[in-house]
Amino acid sequence: MEDLRQTATGYGLPATARKEAIRTFDLATHTVRELNQFLHKELVASGVTKVMVSNPDGAHSIACGVNAPVDIEINGHAGYYVAGMNKHAHVVVNGNAGPGAAENMMSGLVRVRGFASTSAGASARGGCLIIEGDASLRCGISLKGADIVVGGSVGSFSAFMAQAGRMVICGDAGDALGDSLYEAVIYVRGEVKSLGADARYEEMTAADFGTVKQLLDLAGFDYSPQEFRRIASARQLYHWNADAQQEY
């Protein structure tokens, strides 16, 4: 089911469509460096299409900098920067993620089944980050083109200075959502504690409903797009306004 959705929406070729060769790394007996060096230097030649990681136990930088179409499944809780800088890979964390999950992702898909700590998807340029639980503060800060779908709620300062990309929040948002937004668009279903400077609600268009539906389907969340509101930049901060007296 999941693979069909991924194929249908163009987040890269699902590695599972090819003949599956599995390699397992137990981080109780292997180092993260061994895992990542395999992913960076040996994966493509090895013909492995799926990498299973056990006992992650909160280690940092698991599956960072991957640049190949491979499925990676992490069974447990990951620490800082899991799947950071990801390109092409489909990474699933069957647990929680520490700060900076999928930060600076370029393409591919990262799914966190539990909750994600601060700054999830920070500066991500492409691909899709799905967080099934809550995301903490600063989710999608400085987003540069990726999509983020959060099944739960997001903390304060989420999408701060987000430049491009889309963020779908199925739960609530904390303070200052979308502060100093550029051209990223936020869709939120629940309560917003407060909007940040220059963020505003806008009418949902047919294209917005389609976008939300596509991202909800990809994530596997069963909500109606009709329940979501659109937040985008009022573009009042793009140019210096001497008359504003620093009141934004």
Binding site: D57, G58, A59, H60, H77, G79, Y80, N96, G98
Partner: peptide, 11 residues
């Protein structure tokens, strides 16, 4: 009840 800066100290 265990508290830590990071999960890796609780694992």
């Amino acid at each position: 009840v265990a508290v830590s800066s990071e999960f890796r100290s609780l694992a």
